[in-house]
Nucleic acid binder design. Structure first.
Lengths: 164, 164
DNA sequence: TAAGATTGAACCCTCAATCTTC
DNA sequence: GAAGATTGAGGGTTCAATCTTA
């Protein structure tokens, strides 16, 4: 066990676990900031905004119901609604009432939105390859992905998803 | 290679890489939200606020110069300054002029601040164990930490740290 | 001129309240 | 009453401007 110099919780994790945890924290702090910053500078987009646009670009008819889109992006409906309003203002998305359910709203990617995604995607993919994929060996990346998925599944089991 | 259905950058990564990347994105989205939410509910603290307090609790004299503290928390000085102002208002930190350099400010953890960290740390460590440590086998956790550190190092080499 | 730090405005997210439709 | 969605207020972060001292 670690000697406890601070008031921190180090004593509750053994040395190895603590070291691993610090590494994860570091990643959680640094990687989103880097990707977000890169995307913001080169494309004027947030990671989340990009995710929304990209999700729509992959959907049939480039259309997705708001709640489905929120689930895809692991976001609350409130957050998504605000963001879609912004993206609508920039001309990349339009809202359309759903035919099936009068309560539902569909988000549709416009042509301009499609072009935006197409223009940004290569840069973003390049950044991902630079910072993540090329940093690890192929098998290391594979194992890393598996572990990440395991943790994610665990988090989703324990913590009820943020659905305000 | 993936068949390109969307305008996304999938074609720039092979199937395996893309799957790993999606897993990482999932983790980046879900884990901080879970930890932040947990800490916010149980302690009324942000992850970042907790990091700042914990960093001070581990420092000699429970004191750190603002710029050093910012570096430890991978944050900009502007962000740190705002947060310290808030934490000062809650009585957990005080600012003190540095003796060596008249430009420098030191942040000092108060007794109340120490007690706050001591009270919160076990809960936080428990959450970390629950969501991360126990989700993986010991060797898996070790490998995961190593990979995370590799990526972090890479990011810090490439992207000049956000130091507004 | 550069380094350390602070401040205010703009922007984004979260939370709670609200509205409509099932 | 519950589900789908929107809105406004409050709080946190970022960016640029500013101030002081090395």
């Amino acid at each position: 066990m670690s000697r406890s110099q601070g008031a921190g919780g180090e004593v509750w994790l053994d040395d190895g676990q603590q070291e691993s945890w610090r590494a994860v924290i570091g990643l959680l702090t640094v990687l989103p900031a880097a990707l977000d910053g890169d995307l913001r500078r080169t494309a004027g987009l947030t990671m989340f905004e990009y995710t929304v646009l990209a999700s729509l670009s992959e959907a049939p008819e480039r259309t997705l119901q708001m709640s489905a889109l929120a689930a895809r992006a692991s976001a609350s409906l409130a957050r998504l609604s605000h963001v879609v309003t912004r993206l609508e203002g920039r001309g990349w998305i339009t809202r359309k009432a759903s035919g099936r359910d009068a309560r539902a709203t569909n988000a549709v990617l416009t042509t301009a939105g499609w072009e935006k995604v197409a223009a940004v995607a290569p840069c973003h993919a390049q950044a991902v390859r630079d910072l993540v994929v090329d940093a690890l060996s192929p098998s290391q990346l594979r194992q890393f992905g598996i572990a990440a998925a395991k943790i994610t599944r665990r988090v989703e089991e324990r913590a009820p998803t943020t659905s305000a």
